[in-house]
Computed example of a mutant assay.
Amino acid sequence: MRIQEPNRTGMINAYNKTGQTPVGKGRKLSMGKDEVNISAEALEMLKQVEDPDSPARREKIQRLKKQVEDGTYRVPSDKLADKILSFWRKL
């Protein structure tokens, strides 16, 4: 028994053509551009960040790394709770 699918090719072609827009003579299809938009909040956060190459920042990073390695680093729970609450209140 042989089953033929006469409309299969037609359906694939119809599907492929749905994304195309008709272009007349002399008209070119313009392509969109990629864009990156940085929010005002992100720009403000960038201003608040210390210079990554500053000696004070490098010293702080080394101190925190040592605390984590030694197991002496502790996150103050009250500060953590304040940050979580302020985040959820903004939403």
Rank of each mutant, 00 (worst) to 15 (best):
E35S: 10
R63S: 11
G24C: 14
P55S: 08
P52F: 01
G26Q: 04
T9Y: 08
Q67I: 00
R63D: 15
L80D: 07
R27P: 00
T9P: 00
R63N: 13
E59R: 13
L85V: 15
K79W: 07
E41M: 08
R2G: 09
Y73G: 01
P55M: 03
R57M: 09
F87T: 08
Y73N: 02
I3K: 15
E5C: 02
R74H: 10
P6K: 06
R58F: 04
A40K: 09
K79C: 05
G26I: 03
L85C: 04
P6C: 02
Q48L: 13
Q4A: 11
G71V: 01
K83H: 09
L85P: 00
R63P: 02
N16P: 00
M31V: 11
G32E: 11
P55W: 01
R27E: 15
S39D: 04
I84D: 04
K25V: 11
P52Y: 01
N37L: 10
D82V: 02
A56H: 05
G10D: 08
V75S: 03
P52W: 01
M11T: 11
S39E: 01
N16W: 03
G19H: 05
T18W: 03
K25C: 05
V23H: 04
D53A: 11
T9L: 13
K66I: 06
D53C: 04
S39V: 01
A40H: 06
K25N: 09
G26M: 03
L46N: 08
V75R: 08
M45K: 12
E41K: 15
Q4L: 12
T18N: 06
K90F: 02
L29S: 07
R89L: 08
I38E: 12
K47W: 03
G24R: 15
P52I: 02
Q4W: 06
A40V: 06
R63C: 03
R58Y: 00
F87P: 00
N37E: 07
A14D: 12
T18I: 07
L46A: 10
G19D: 05
G24W: 14
I3H: 13
L46W: 05
R89Q: 11
Y15W: 13
M1P: 11
K28F: 14
G71K: 02
L29W: 05
G32Y: 06
N7F: 15
N37G: 05
E59V: 04
K66S: 12
N37V: 13
T72C: 01
P76F: 03
E41L: 14
Q62R: 15
V68I: 14
E69P: 01
E50R: 15
K17W: 03
M45F: 07
L85W: 06
D53G: 12
K83Y: 11
A14C: 03
N16L: 12
Q67W: 00
R8K: 13
P76T: 03
V49K: 10
L46Q: 09
E59P: 01
K33H: 10
R63F: 09
Q4C: 07
K65H: 07
Q48I: 07
R63G: 05
R58S: 06
S30N: 13
M11S: 12
N7L: 15
S86A: 12
K79F: 09
E5N: 09
K66T: 11
K90Q: 04
Q4D: 12
Q48Y: 05
K28Q: 10
E44H: 06
